[in-house]
């Protein structure tokens, strides 16, 4: 079988997998009960409850409800979010962009600080600065995110008033268009420096809170990799050739030490995405995590199903891409050996 045929075969299977996933997601959410509760108020009479069921097709058998839902999804109607009081399709992209922006900012904090701290500590093994960085790293890895986030909130928002919570100054946010949904990028595209500064200012606290735990992991990995590299023969050879200590460290040892660290960084991004739920709740960041937590607590099934379907499809595509890469790397995958 050619690689092209393999890819075509995998692409043909993909819609079946997506439909299968949608059935499973729909069935699992319905096991938790009817989603009607989110649309009801305690003043409604039974006749009014029935009207609400009819409006959302919840008076029909579950398989029929599934077809209404999948028909809506195919037409871009993901249902009504009771938590956000708006169509899911309108809210999801905004929340997704907000969460990604926070996760990326936290990733930048974690990577830049982690590599710098790890390099600094590794190059000064067993010196006082190494011990200090080790303490800082262990603290970051062992402090619960919610506790550290509240600590930052109390010190920098309540006491000092240096950093705000939420995502933006609403007046600045309203003043610019939002083509990407990323406030920082939109502010730059609009050429509005005040809005850009506002975006950064709002990002700092949640990004630091979220990134600190990952910083610790990256710094620890960077330090130990660098120490290993510094014990390699090529380092001694470089020094013997007369290269300056700083050049050996930056041009040779650090570059090689980054290889295992980058692997950890990749894994860390998943950790950051998980952490956004807590950070968003504490810092009132209007992202997917906070929205989803409310949706789960209040039984907002349209929102939950969209989120689960989105992540499922994302994983299906990622798996597809990985399989294709494997196929290129190892022909036996294509040949089915």
């Amino acid at each position: 079988m050619q690689i092209r045929d393999y890819i075509i075969r995998r692409l043909m299977i993909l819609p079946i997998l997506i439909i299968g996933t949608s059935i499973i997601v729909f069935a699992l959410t319905r096991i938790g009960g009817s989603p009607i509760g989110i649309y009801l108020s305690h003043e409604m009479s039974p006749a009014e409850v029935q009207e609400m069921k009819e409006r959302f097709h919840l008076d029909k058998p579950v398989p029929v409800q599934y077809f209404y839902w999948i028909k809506g999804v195919s037409q871009g109607d993901l249902g009504w979010s009771g938590v956000a009081s708006a169509p899911v399709v309108d809210v999801f992209p905004k929340k997704f962009a907000a969460t990604m922006e926070l996760a990326i900012a936290a990733g930048i904090v974690a990577v830049s600080l982690g590599i710098a701290m790890g390099t600094f500590a590794g190059a000064r093994r067993n010196k006082i600065s190494d011990h200090i960085i080790r303490v800082v790293s262990v603290s970051g890895a062992s402090m619960p995110l919610f506790w550290f986030a509240i600590l930052l909130l109390i010190i920098f928002w309540v006491w000092l008033g240096w950093f705000p919570i939420g995502r933006s100054d609403p007046n600045l946010f309203e003043a610019i268009p939002h083509p990407t949904g990323f406030y920082t990028i939109d502010a730059l595209l609009a050429g509005n420096f005040s809005a850009f500064r506002d975006a950064i200012w709002h990002l700092i606290m949640p990004a630091v809170a979220l990134g600190y735990g990952a910083t610790a992991i990256i710094a620890r990995m960077m330090r130990s990799s660098l120490i290993e590299e510094l014990q390699e023969d090529y380092v001694d050879a470089a020094k013997a050739k007369g290269l300056a200590e700083r050049v050996v460290l930056k041009k040779h040892a650090r570059r090689n030490a980054l290889v295992p660290t980058v692997t950890v960084i990749g894994l860390t991004f998943g950790f950051l995405l998980q952490g956004t739920v807590v950070a968003e709740i504490i810092f009132r960041w209007p992202g997917l995590g906070r929205w989803m937590a409310s949706a789960v607590l209040r039984g907002d099934q349209a929102t939950i199903m969209t989120y689960v379907m989105f992540t499922s499809i994302l994983f299906l595509f990622v798996n597809l891409v990985v399989d294709i890469i494997y196929a290129y790397l190892d022909r036996r995958v294509v040949l089915g050996d």
Binding site: P35, G37, L40, H42, M44, S45, P46, V49, L297, G299
Partner: peptide
């Protein structure tokens, strides 16, 4: 129970 579950139970007749 969660608010949505209560509202549904409460709205029954």
């Amino acid at each position: 129970v969660a608010e949505a579950v209560f509202d549904e139970a409460h709205a029954q007749n």
